[in-house]
């Protein structure tokens, strides 16, 4: 149940962020691993290099357990005001943001327990 909740909250926050850009297409996929999971979100909204840098900055992995366990509980809970990628950033182990050939952007997130090594995901970060 705890995991299930986290999946829903992270997907909800990510979807909220992407939907703020009014995309015509948005796809979110999730791949479960034994000790973590990979979320990939794709939309069709063209973005500048600065936009991508901003997304990366927002999602920048912060090892801030004190913020993750307290303020991080707001992730995906509230959809009022601007979405907050940093709330996702507290929870993740790996991130990759890239443009896709069709236009738009693909955001890859790897999430796992404290001892989890994102390099062990069957879907590699380079794929």
């Amino acid at each position: 149940m705890k995991r299930h909740e986290l999946y829903v909250q992270l997907i909800s926050e990510l979807a909220n962020y992407l939907l703020h850009g009014n995309p015509k297409k948005m796809v979110i996929s999730m791949h479960l691993e034994s000790d973590g999971f990979h979320i990939a979100a794709i939309d069709d909204r063209p973005r500048t290099d600065k936009d991508i840098a901003d997304i990366e900055h927002g999602l920048m992995m912060h090892k801030r357990p004190e913020l993750a366990s307290y303020y991080g509980t707001m992730v995906g809970q509230d959809l009022l005001g601007s979405s907050r990628l940093e709330l996702i950033g507290f929870q993740i182990k790996g991130v990759k943001v890239e443009r896709i050939p069709e236009g738009g952007v693909m955001i890859n997130l790897w999430i796992g327990s404290e001892d989890f090594d994102p390099a062990m995901f069957t879907i590699s970060q380079d794929s």
Binding site: Y70, T73, M74, Q77, D78, L80, G81
Partner: peptide, 14 residues
């Protein structure tokens, strides 16, 4: 305190 603080956070949404 922690469960109450977390619940209250959701009320005013930060």
């Amino acid at each position: 305190l922690p469960p109450i603080a977390i619940a209250m956070l959701r009320l005013h949404q930060g």
